[in-house]
Design a protein around this nucleic acid. Structure first.
Lengths: 152, 152
DNA sequence: TATTGTTATACTCTATAACTATA
DNA sequence: TATAGTTATAGAGTATAACAATA
């Protein structure tokens, strides 16, 4: 066999010790889990993000939604097109600016939102179940700090 | 104005308190940073992952590489095609199985690998710089535990 | 002039499944 | 029959830039 295995090489340490690498693995795994759950509701991750944002504050404009979830304009347009076609959101004329729409949930999607919360809860719970209560608390606190440091 | 803002709604808590959501935000941010750095070296994230894997153990088959980084066969083929075209890897006949190749770095890519380590180091350092030394240690430990729980 | 939203277009990524050649 | 690797092909996602309407 001609495989050259370096004795717990520098590379091994770089990779396994890399915070970014570990975050990536976790994210890939979580994305797959979320996508599976959402597929059953006929949604993809982008559509899910928009619905979650609206469940927090309805009547946002498209650009406000896009900004909240860092989704570019063209993608926001198409995601909302898809959600509108499924009757999950509604575009209403803005009564202040005639070039903006305000986006609202529908009766149909309001029934789905609790299921979205449930999915989020389930996936988070599954993730955190590997940790002790103290670790869970530490982890959340650190994540909040990191997210803040990257978004301001 | 017809925006309906719910008073720090259930949804707000679900979203902001969601570990998965925060992980996603971090990952997106890190991916963008990594991609920017790698673009200068003419690499994308998939190619980077393959090179890092090879820098740890050369002479793997394509399917072994794909398995290590959870990349499907068709993507592994194409990533290695692209790397081969850039003279960053070399396919050598396996001397045991005539249907497998063994993949090796080249002199050229061996010069690039230290730069890859440097990029990883830089991005990790930037990420962790928002945390105290104690938090950094806790964070790494927790991530290792979580990755382990998801990959076995 | 700048902004909101849309669209044409191209390009990349991802996924399926069929295929060759081995084992 | 199963596996390693390749490829055709289709679909989804991403990006750029141009555009109309409006501010």
């Amino acid at each position: 066999m001609n495989m050259v295995k370096k004795p717990e090489s520098q590379a091994g340490k770089v990779r396994k010790g890399s915070t970014g690498w570990m975050l990536k693995i976790l994210c890939t795994s979580l994305d797959a889990e979320m996508s599976d759950e959402l597929r059953r509701l006929g949604l993809n991750l982008g559509q899910f993000a928009v619905l979650m944002t609206l469940s927090e504050a309805e009547g946002l404009t498209q650009s406000e939604i896009g900004k909240k979830i860092t989704m570019p304009g063209y993608a926001t347009t198409r995601t909302i097109d898809a959600l509108e076609e499924k009757r999950f959101v509604e575009r209403r004329k803005d009564n202040r600016s005639r070039r903006s729409y305000r986006i609202y949930l529908t009766d149909q999607s309001r029934k789905v939102v609790p299921q979205l919360f449930a999915v989020v809860g389930k996936v988070n719970e599954h993730l955190l179940s590997a940790l002790t209560p103290k670790e869970q608390k530490d982890f959340m606190k650190i994540l909040q700090k990191l997210v803040l440091s990257r978004t301001e």
